[in-house]
Design a protein around this nucleic acid. Structure first.
Ligand code: SF4
Ligand code: SF4
Lengths: 155, 155
DNA sequence: ATAAAGCATACCAAGTTGGTATTCTTTAAT
DNA sequence: ATTAAAGAATACCAACTTGGTATGCTTTAT
């Protein structure tokens, strides 16, 4: 179904909740309540976000989580990669691994291109935009701006 | 890892093989050889392609498969949907289903937008392009052309 | 010292995926 | 009509992934 994992989805939701008050520490329990997620699941999500360096954890009493950097500096690509690893639509996209039939296949470049575009799309949407109803338009605009060649290389 | 299924990948490969000689009937065995896939797997792929109406099957002796329409009229989106169903990055993207916490979540529109862009990308790459090394550029160009509003609605 | 928090680990049930095998049906060629 | 070459249909299975839960440990403000 070409879908992202639920945990990834939850991650974005929680992050966007944190983005509402970037300064304050939010506890797991409160986040679970705000989002409607169960507590254990929320824990799991928070751990992944912490490991990926997207949130800062403050341990001990009066602890909690807060965004590790500005909402506009956290993209959907960051979140997706935090939960699902590198974005690679096909096996061959990732570090020259290649699949069993790479020799007979001439599509690696094609998929690679799609993959880069997809990453570019995700990289352009940040926590600051994700609720904005005009992102679709802005994204389309965004993709037409900037030199594709260069940004593709730098992804 | 946000990847497409292997069967989907194989489907594209086989279709692109068929696209080389659109007129001739190719048998399963020959296709398996050309692509390096095992025979049973090839069968499975062919069945899915047939069900989706992307190839025409001719049964009986001297039978085989051929593209059901011009290569330029078969997009990656068609293939992906044939194997994995509707493209829906999140649960809520699909026919108002919504997930358990849809009420607390304000991201449905955002994901919906990304999803539409993704579909648009896949829809623009056809079997005729997929081996073309310049597709990335052409795709970027393509996305900037045409009125996004209208094409998004019609997807 | 204590309680409030996060951290780490381990586990499990369910679903999905890739892959294989077997048997049936259609049809061109003879 | 017979035969053989094809595809169609079905069923099955092992491995992996995913979402979700439970339990116990560590840190730290008070
Ligand atoms: S080499 Fe071809 S078949 Fe293998 S993963 Fe890449 S695109 Fe798919
Ligand atoms: S409603 Fe929110 S949490 Fe639920 S599937 Fe959609 S985006 Fe994800």
């Amino acid at each position: 179904m070409l879908k992202i994992g639920k945990l990834t989805d939850y991650g974005v939701l929680i992050l966007s909740t944190l983005a509402e008050q970037p300064a304050v520490l939010r506890q797991t329990e409160g986040l679970a309540e705000s989002t409607g997620l169960s507590l254990p699941t929320t824990r799991k999500v928070m751990k992944a976000l912490t490991d990926a360096g997207l949130v800062q954890a403050q341990r001990g009493a009066k602890g909690g989580y807060r965004l590790a950097r500005a909402a506009s500096m956290i993209s959907l690509r960051d979140v997706v990669e935090a939960f699902e690893g590198p974005i690679a639509l096909t096996e061959c996209t990732q570090d020259e691994h290649g699949c069993d039939i790479t020799e007979q296949c001439s599509l690696a470049d094609g998929w690679g291109g799609i993959n880069q575009l997809l990453m570019q799309m995700l990289a352009r949407v940040t926590l600051a935009d994700v609720k904005d109803p005009t992102i679709v338009d802005r994204l389309t605009q965004g993709l037409m701006m900037g030199s594709p060649r260069i940004s593709l290389v730098n992804l």
